[in-house]
Design a protein around this nucleic acid. Sequence first.
DNA 1: CCTACATTTGCATCACTGTTGCAAAACAGT
DNA 2: ACTGTTTTGCAACAGTGATGCAAATGTAGG
Lengths: 139, 139
Amino acid sequence: MQDPTIDILKRNNLSVTEGRRNILQLFLNHNASALRHSDIESSLHGLDRVTIYRTLQAFTEKGIIHSIPGSDGAARYALCKGGCEQGHHHDDHVHFVCVRCGSTQCLDDVHVPYVRMPEGFEATKVEMVVSGICSKCRK
Amino acid sequence: MQDPTIDILKRNNLSVTEGRRNILQLFLNHNASALRHSDIESSLHGLDRVTIYRTLQAFTEKGIIHSIPGSDGAARYALCKGGCEQGHHHDDHVHFVCVRCGSTQCLDDVHVPYVRMPEGFEATKVEMVVSGICSKCRK
DNA sequence: CCTACATTTGCATCACTGTTGCAAAACAGT
DNA sequence: ACTGTTTTGCAACAGTGATGCAAATGTAGG
């Protein structure tokens, strides 16, 4: 109740630790754009690299955050807005990567359109990433 | 004329070297699914890692191959089927990643649908990657 | 075919991402 | 507060990708 981070961690059956609360708080403060592991590492010095990796894994498994594939070989993470539960994500929105400022954001209102698969293919997940100039960089 | 690899390299103003011909031949033989750097490295032992990276870069710039974002942090590459030229790619097809066999393939007949961007966003590139079970693995 | 110039290769090295095993520290429930 | 479980930090490792430089290779002209 008092602190939203404690609440979220408990609801997801995760032990409430300093590191997890700090990482979660960072996502709550920063929900305009997705965070890379390195962003978290530089914001929260003193927290071990490995702990951050493991925390991101745990949060992803619980459905607190979702990962966004980055073409530069570094995963990005953003808070799930709702509908995601233990084991199953329902983030069917489009992601946007700005080539100018480098930020990745969730376009929560733009949902991934349906595409018909060829005979014999069975789709279980669809990722759509749009690159271009974001609204902030276009001024 | 005689060897398609020589032909393709010359058409793109690339020096014809042993390594480039071998890599290109690998793509020609293997056009059902995309290749990772490591696939090429293990198929063509004796060729330096760095040479492979630089060749993949050169081929991508020339529009011979295109890269496919992989969520596992390893880029995949596949031959461009047409419409791609020096500097500009026109691969608007969907990519499929099989979670069973791990292969990545181009669904050349399935093209990426249009999505309307929110106010202020300017899209220049759209990537769509579908995961699931491919037709071969479903038998 | 040989020479001279430009390009490419291989090697060493580096930076970054992500994983694993293990002992010490922190947490949860009684 | 005590005990058992979970998490953390550390060390080490594997993989991807980039860069600088000297040696090797390719290209074009005669």
